[in-house]
């Protein structure tokens, strides 16, 4: 029996869709059966980031309105057999979906998958309510900006009223090391102490993420970038492993490392 996790943030543009795609990819890399559901009806993106745009035939609304079977709407990923996408409709709007319909649909998917990741639209209106309806757990995403943390706080407050299995988890996205150091951005500790929920992971602001989604291939698929390691760590933590947080330090030269080792620096 699978577990459904909603990925949400309140504020737009903090990286919900990118995170959903990458955690999904990272879980698939760990041999988990994963289904991604794009709930951002009318403004779908998840398919583009995964590079599956051209393969969509049916969508979520078609399934809910009985125009096709659930199985025929699922799009299989190019790279993994165990990663599927249920795309959102681009032509309809959010009000055509009801929370009960979504709940039923996710219950139907659960026996076939280990994880069901739900990509939530921005905002706290109907679209959010639909996305959260079928979720067992929730992940709140924020960037180290005040406005984004404020919205994450609001969404966590709303999620806590939903009666989820556990309190929401936190992912901090787009961390810029030098700005945090200079105090121009909230630090990880500040954010965690304000939001006071468990931190699932941190992701550095990395050009590779943008480059990867431009090419329709989630960054988590690459073996060695900082962002991909962050996403893989998050996936391992979701599976229950305890993985330490990644260090921020920029790549150091060999001599610096030696000096550090010898206590000279």
């Amino acid at each position: 029996m699978g577990e459904s996790i909603v990925i949400t943030s309140g504020k737009g543009g903090v990286g919900k869709t990118t995170t959903t795609a990458n955690i999904g990819t990272a879980l698939a890399l760990l041999d988990q059966k994963v289904c991604l559901i794009d709930m951002d009806i009318g403004l779908r993106n998840l398919d583009v980031i995964l590079g599956l745009e051209n393969r969509i035939i049916f969508n979520l609304i078609d399934v809910l309105e009985g125009r096709c079977k659930l199985q025929s709407a699922l799009v299989k990923d190019k790279r993994f057999d165990c990663l599927h996408l249920l795309p959102a409709a681009q032509t309809s709007d959010k009000n055509e979906v009801t929370p009960d319909g979504i709940k039923e649909l996710i219950e139907e998917l659960k026996p076939d998958y280990d994880y069901i990741l739900i990509d939530c639209p921005a905002g706290i209106e109907q679209g959010y309510k639909n996305a959260v309806a079928g979720a067992d757990k929730a992940v709140a995403i924020t960037t180290p900006e005040k406005s984004s943390v404020r919205d994450a706080d609001r969404i966590i407050g709303l999620l806590e009223q939903e009666g989820l299995e556990t309190s929401p988890y936190l992912i901090i996205n787009r961390i810029r090391k030098h700005m945090m150091d200079s105090g121009d951005m909230l630090s990880v500790d500040d954010i965690v102490s304000t939001l006071s929920i468990e931190l699932l992971g941190i992701i550095l602001d990395d050009e590779d993420v943008i480059r990867a989604s431009h090419h329709g291939e989630p960054v988590a698929f690459q073996p060695d970038t900082k962002a991909s390691i962050s996403y893989r760590n998050i996936a391992r933590r979701i599976l229950g492993e305890s993985v330490p947080l990644m260090s921020f330090d920029n790549d150091q030269g060999f001599m610096t490392k030696v000096k550090k080792l010898l206590g000279m620096k």
């Binding site: 404020r150 919205d151 706080d153 609001r154 966590i156 407050g157 709303l158 304000t194 939001l195 006071s196």
Partner: peptide, 21 residues
């Protein structure tokens, strides 16, 4: 949290933070 209103008659003791908003 932001957007939440905690209203009581009498004295209020909040064991936890009151976040911005």
């Amino acid at each position: 949290r932001s957007g939440q209103v905690h209203e009581v008659k009498g004295d209020a003791l909040v064991i936890g933070d009151v976040n911005p908003g």
